[in-house]
Design a binder for these strands. Structure first.
Lengths: 344, 344
DNA sequence: GGGCTCCATTGAAATGTTTCAGACGCCGTG
DNA sequence: CACGGCGTCTGAAACATTTCAATGGAGCCC
């Protein structure tokens, strides 16, 4: 039943009684071939179950019909929403999307990039471990369009799409300050991640501007942006004696916030009365937490869509100029900071 | 700087002063070429920045070095954990993993499969919208190994890897019965999804065996397995007048359970005292919910890893026989059903 | 020194598609 | 009738790699 080898253009040409070129024309420029022949060829293709060999096409064309997204953390739904946005744009352009996951490791990232170059992908979208890493520049040097997602590329060397993380941190801190919090924990790490650095920096700026005491902005470092690390931070926080304990926490992302939330509730604290919590990203599970999480929203899908558009533009337009797109984050207030939420 | 065209084997051969064949040998059978030449070739490759063109290699080889996983719902972390397991196995075999998302739509699924056949992927792993769909058989007929993940293929026509969903449903129902619940809501839909059918069926079986009244097992149908649908089911549940209201709910997956949890807590009910909740899948967020969710655990990564092994076996072994692997689900009891959890 | 073996290397074929210059036949026009 | 033009189709080249039979040379034994 399985024929062994799948039929080629040549086979189709033979059974339809035409030449190779004509079969190719039927597929790529149907308007130049007469209706009669076209129908004959199409019947032959159906009969043989012909499927174009993409490798051969790519070989000839010199480039594939795929984009790739290398994400930073596959266990964070945020990146999947970004990927979803990219996919939408890719689909519109009739391209496939190849998704890789570096899991925060520079070496895995390099391996993936290597493979993508081998595949001659049309463009690379990436949320890098380190936007300054030389292997990113290497991709660009090869002439492959590359767009940094959720970070800003080094010195404008690439296109990038990001939200203003410093602003996001400011928004979160301002929100907490407005609700009367004067002793706040900022939770996040490692500082090697630019996202973390800038979000916490934004909070510090506000703190300074409001004239609050620096020692009342308490940094709880974490080794990763995960739920488990959030729980660990929650333990440390709950361990702080009552009078010195912060009344609010700003977490560098929602996974941390969810872990922290779980931990402190388990320890008997009430949210937001004993501890208000603000997360970052506004992933779907933030709203679905039993105490719905206030979060700094990033336009996740839009981020992906915009990045895809940039990479396609760079691929199409020879005199493309790199652009750094910046989106504004937005606070979504929910029950974890506001005792009586307006909307359910 | 960007050279326009990337260097080929021919270029490497020229600068190293050897023939094409030798360069190829350096890459594929380094042991047959003398150390001196090998080193010369390797230097030339480095100098030119040579990267093998995967399309050409594939064209010659007849098959690519990629597996593909078509997942049913990209917004459900469960499938990403499965994908992670597949990726691990793929990496071991030095293959790439192509991830697609059908989003529960048969037409998207068909489009993806079509593209994958064009790519001549080595194997397809899929959690199908409908395991009986003819386009799955079509893949197999083409000689491409295909493995059904999280379902059992039609009539043993394919390999498959799944947990026993009926058993899972039984385990959940037994757990609730043991805790004294005699009026229970079963939440899930659409029934076109086999997972839903079987999980609910398992619950019904237990119900019958225990001699409980069928009308006390109340089905709350949903149109999808999402958090939003879970909330909607929660509304309906909370709307049931107190005496007739179920004291527990079994949800067909964790997303539903999380949505339901959120909704009923918002409506002022206490979990588990007013309503116990059991989910299914045991995704990471189940444990991280503010009332940690009791869930029927599937070995998510292991599912993926086993599926990948099957597909690789089918690709390698000509006299491969299809196998249906079945894993046992396992109850993970947490605070959403047990007032005083043993472990924190 | 001739013949032999063994090893490293070569050159050409093959993979399946696209593209493009050209061929072929037909029609209408001068 | 000759010619140009047009619409349709053909055949071959090109893409980058792998593979394999064949080549060449070096060393060894008799």
């Amino acid at each position: 039943m399985a024929n062994g080898r799948s039929p080629s253009v040549k086979d189709v040409a033979a059974t339809a009684g035409v030449s190779l070129g004509t079969v190719s024309n039927v597929m790529n420029r149907p308007e130049v071939v007469s209706p009669a022949t076209r129908e004959r060829v199409e019947r032959a293709m159906a009969e043989l179950g012909f499927v174009r060999n993409e490798s051969a096409r790519q070989l000839r064309a010199g480039t594939s019909r795929t984009l790739a997204y290398v994400m930073l953390d596959g266990s964070n739904p945020f990146f999947h929403d970004v990927a979803q946005g990219i996919e939408l744009a890719a689909e519109t352009a009739d391209l496939s999307l190849f998704i890789c996951n570096s899991n925060g490791r520079a070496d895995r990232e390099a391996v993936h990039l290597d493979r993508l170059v081998q595949q001659r992908v049309q463009g690379v979208l990436i949320t890098p471990v380190d936007p300054e890493a030389p292997h990113l520049a290497e991709i660009a040097r090869r002439g492959i369009p590359i767009v940094i997602v959720d970070r800003v590329g080094a010195g404008g060397a690439f296109c990038s799409v990001a939200v203003d993380d410093v602003l996001g941190g400011r928004i979160a801190a301002e929100h907490l300050a407005e609700h009367g919090h004067t002793r706040v924990a900022v939770v996040g790490g490692p500082e090697s991640l630019g996202q973390v650095r800038e979000r916490l920096e934004g909070a510090r700026q506000v703190w300074a501007e409001l004239g609050l005491r620096p020692e009342d902005l308490i940094h709880l470092p974490t080794s990763a942006l995960t739920v488990a690390e959030g729980r660990s931070a929650g333990e440390r926080l709950a361990g702080i004696p009552g009078r010195r304990r912060p009344t609010a926490a700003f977490c560098a992302n929602d996974l941390l916030a969810l872990g922290l939330l779980q931990q402190v509730i388990g320890a008997g604290m009430r949210v937001p009365d004993d501890l208000a919590i603000v997360g970052f990203d506004d992933i779907e599970f933030a709203a679905a937490a039993a105490v719905p999480l206030t979060s700094v929203r990033q336009p996740r899908q839009e981020l992906g869509r915009a990045a895809a558009r940039l990479v396609l533009d760079e691929a199409a337009d020879p005199q493309h100029r790199h652009r750094q797109l910046s989106f504004e984050p937005e606070l979504v207030a929910r029950a974890s900071t506001v005792s009586r939420p307006r909307a359910l």
